[in-house]
Nucleic acid binder design. Structure first.
Lengths: 131, 131
DNA sequence: GTTATACCCGACTAAAATAATCGTATTAAT
DNA sequence: ATTAATACGATTATTTTAGTCGGGTATAAC
């Protein structure tokens, strides 16, 4: 329980690697080979980050990806939710369609824990991990 | 991502309900019906908590479960790990058998986040949720 | 001592979430 | 043209989580 997804790990590893390389375009292949990440999966994740405007892509030979300035300022909460959808330790924090709801006797304390966890990720910037 | 399991939710709901009822034995059926929890699943969870000495069981008619004194002092970390095994936002915090390891470029910051999350659950007692 | 109610427990199945792969198209440098 | 790269939807596989089933044991009430 309480795990990050691989996709997020791969994304962070890739971002860090690209960041280390400055402005040059890095191919998905290079990263996948270096960190033993499944190539297609990483590619998809990178493509998602392009759509999110986190990184910039260049096609063709010598193409690849590079990090956009400003990415490092984004909070981990936003980063995680952009890539994986809403975060919450229980479903009722997300969709509120819980058959318990009315009777639930632990809602408030759970809610509090949830905001404590969010607070952690709010205070961390992507750059804290990737630079 | 970052979700608690249903089992943990059910366990906490049950504990709180039992605690509200003081010293009388409460059947799994009563709790399952009241909170719309699958009966067998709840039963299994309660049995697990008996083994952990969290609660006491009584068999036969008018039997059921009641909370043991002292349970409320246990930390959520311990509670969660007793019921669900080791907690960690990434696997390498748990079993260290990660093919990246050597090359991994985000280990330290991730580790730090991990201990922040553990810290939250260390500071919360089960009783903070169930009473 | 029979019955009804409840816990005990392991094996099993189902469902959902996550992870990974495949196929085809597009782009651009050489 | 060829090659090396991204783009992207569809599909499959794996793992984790959730839930069910069947047979057993204890005990209170009658």
């Amino acid at each position: 329980m309480l795990k990050l997804t691989r996709k997020l790990e791969y994304a962070l590893i890739a971002l860090r690697h690209m960041q280390d390389k400055g402005d040059t375009f890095i191919s998905a292949k290079e990263i996948a080979d270096m960190y033993l990440i499944p190539r297609e999966l990483l590619a998809k994740t990178l493509q998602q980050m392009v759509k999110l405007n986190y990184i910039k892509a260049a096609q063709g030979p010598h193409g690849g990806y590079r990090v956009r300035k400003g990415l490092t300022e984004i909070s981990m909460t936003q980063f995680m939710e952009d890539l994986e959808g809403p975060m919450g330790i229980v479903d009722c924090n997300i969709n509120a369609e819980c058959i318990q709801l009315e009777n639930c006797n632990i809602r408030l304390p759970i809610k509090k824990i949830n905001s404590n966890i969010r607070a952690i990720f709010n205070e961390i910037r992507v750059g804290d991990i990737t630079s």
